[in-house]
């Protein structure tokens, strides 16, 4: 339906990637390709993960304002990670146990988020604003707990852990790239196959049941997918509060449709442009030292305010 617009977006993403790979580079391709190439791959994976998880979450929450990070998903992940460091110890973990920790934390995040957000979302006639407020306060609670635990671990070196809880795009943990790629692409594939079901779920509980879907079960399935996406992208670049909201709001503007097939593609492309293009412009062209995440938070926060105020007036 929006083939032309999607083509434009894809071209924009292509240009961004080209810019990211070439602008300001001195070495030859044999250096560039592995070095910038892995970072580019990581950025693209994060883009897909954040946009997909936001779309999925907004559909089951039936709300365009809620996103996983506003509801405290990534804060919860960081908390679980801090607790696991606290209990199991050790910055100097070997590669295999780092992997094991990632997988255990991921499992715990799935259980905790289904328990917590599942209960919140499956309550009928829940006041959306109260739910939002709960999410924001929960996120604060998780963040404060993480920072407390970080200081409990080592009061002198808490800064190293604190750094991990800020978003960063210039230094990306590429150790887990292979596994993350498999996980993200796997989940995105499942989401893609669910796209028609998601269209139905977006109609609301009663309509979905009438058309033979099971909203309760789907909600839990989708929460699991969201948990995986959030865990992987947070492990990569840290929490990015408003990226999901920003790119999905833009996607609704560029491709105004209820079709998840279209929205999943357009929001991923926009997220890719925002991350790769934004990083290129900010770092290579303007030479600004401010991380992209701060800028995205600023813009995304404004979008959020506009959305909320518009919703209030209706």
């Amino acid at each position: 339906m929006f083939a032309r617009r999607l083509t434009f977006l894809a071209a924009g993403l292509g240009l961004s990637c080209l810019g990211y790979m070439t602008i300001g580079s001195r070495g030859g391709w044999d250096f560039l390709l592995p070095f910038r190439g892995t970072r580019l791959a990581a950025l693209l994976l994060v883009a897909v993960a954040v946009s997909t998880s936001t779309i999925l979450f907004q559909t089951i929450a039936r709300n365009r304002i809620l996103t996983p990070s506003i509801m405290g998903f990534d804060a919860l992940y960081l908390l679980i990670l801090s607790v696991s460091v606290f209990l199991l110890g050790g910055a100097g973990l070997s590669e295999t146990s780092a992997l094991a920790r990632f997988l255990v934390s991921l499992g715990l995040l799935i259980v905790a988020s289904v328990g917590l957000f599942g209960t919140l979302l499956l309550q009928r006639r829940e006041d959306v604003m109260r739910m939002l407020l709960t999410g924001v306060v929960l996120a604060t609670l998780f963040r404060s707990l993480s920072s407390l635990i970080a200081r409990m671990i080592d009061p002198n070196e808490y800064s190293t852990i604190q750094v991990a809880s800020y978003a960063r795009f210039s230094r990306i943990e590429t150790d887990l790239l292979g596994l993350s790629a498999v996980l993200i692409l796997g989940v995105v594939g499942i989401a893609w196959r669910m796209r028609h079901r998601l269209d139905i779920l977006a109609l609301g509980r009663d309509a979905a049941i009438n058309l033979g879907e099971n909203p309760r079960r789907r909600t839990i399935e989708v929460l699991i997918l969201v948990a995986v996406l959030v865990a992987v992208s947070t492990a990569f670049v840290g929490p990015i509060a408003f990226l999901g909201l920003l790119v999905v709001s833009l996607a609704h503007l560029v491709t105004p449709t209820g079709s998840h097939g279209t929205l999943l593609v357009s929001s991923s492309l926009i997220a890719g442009i925002a991350l790769v293009g934004g990083q290129t412009v900010l770092e290579r062209v303007l030479g600004l030292s401010t991380p992209l995440a701060v800028l995205i938070d600023l813009l995304g926060g404004l979008v959020f305010l506009i959305l909320v105020l518009k919703g209030a007036r209706r």
């Binding site: 939002l132 407020l133 924001v136």
Partner: peptide, 24 residues
């Protein structure tokens, strides 16, 4: 709840602005 929420985000935006300036 909406007013409170908008307040939290409004504060968050100004906070992000502060971080931005501080970074620069």
């Amino acid at each position: 709840f909406l007013v409170a929420l908008v307040g939290l985000i409004y504060g968050g935006i100004i906070g992000a602005g502060v971080t931005f300036v501080a970074y620069q």
